[in-house]
């Protein structure tokens, strides 16, 4: 009988310890990681001057090489893939033909078309060495230049001059977009 009482007592003591230690602390960790990407920037001239064209009695065209065209540089995150999108055709309208308003008249006869292309070159060089054609929509890695990614682009193309073209100053807008 004494043994049974003793055993019950032991069980109660242990259970009471269980109740007093019913709280348990522990911890875990969840890693947090972030990558901070250098924003894209474009450097270079905003104006591509194509020179003077002679008006002719028949349609003609003039090729502007990438070397003679406009250069600009894209800066961003090193070794990061960037996609280049650009207008493949730019319409230039005559700004000087209307002397009263200084704005262009409406009419197809005073527009010319510039079919564009871009050559790209990665690497540490800034000059025009051996660039490759870069069709719109292409993706290319930015060259690692001391923690800054770099890509040089040269815009060239072909200017198509219709027969009825009038003399004057022709202006158009060419948009290049770079996207990570």
């Amino acid at each position: 009988m004494k043994s049974i009482i003793l055993n019950i007592l032991i069980i109660l003591i242990v259970l009471s310890f269980k109740n007093t230690s019913a709280q348990d602390n522990d911890f875990t960790t969840v890693n947090i990681t972030a990558n901070l990407v250098r924003g894209l920037a474009m450097e270079g001239s905003n104006n591509l001057y194509l020179g003077e064209f002679a008006l002719r009695t028949n349609e003609n065209e003039k090729i502007i090489s990438n070397f003679d065209g406009l250069k600009f540089t894209i800066l961003g995150q090193s070794n990061r893939l960037v996609t280049i999108l650009y207008d493949q055709s730019v319409t230039l309208t005559n700004m000087a033909n209307n002397s009263n308003s200084g704005r262009q008249s409406i009419g197809d006869d005073i527009k010319m078309t510039f079919k564009t292309n871009i050559a790209s070159e990665t690497g540490p060089e800034n000059g025009y060495h051996d660039p490759n054609p870069l069709p719109s929509g292409s993706s290319i890695n930015l060259y690692d230049l001391s923690k800054v990614g770099k890509l040089n682009l040269w815009i060239g193309g072909t200017m198509y001059l219709p027969v009825a073209l009038k003399n004057g100053k022709y202006i158009g807008r060419f948009v290049v977009t770079s996207v990570y």
Partner: peptide
């Protein structure tokens, strides 16, 4: 009947903040 509240952790995934910009 010992201490029964030992806890365990699993199914962990890191929190990733992908491509942030200054």
């Amino acid at each position: 009947f010992g201490n029964g509240n030992a806890q365990s952790f699993d199914a962990k995934l890191s929190l990733i903040l992908y491509d942030s910009f200054p």
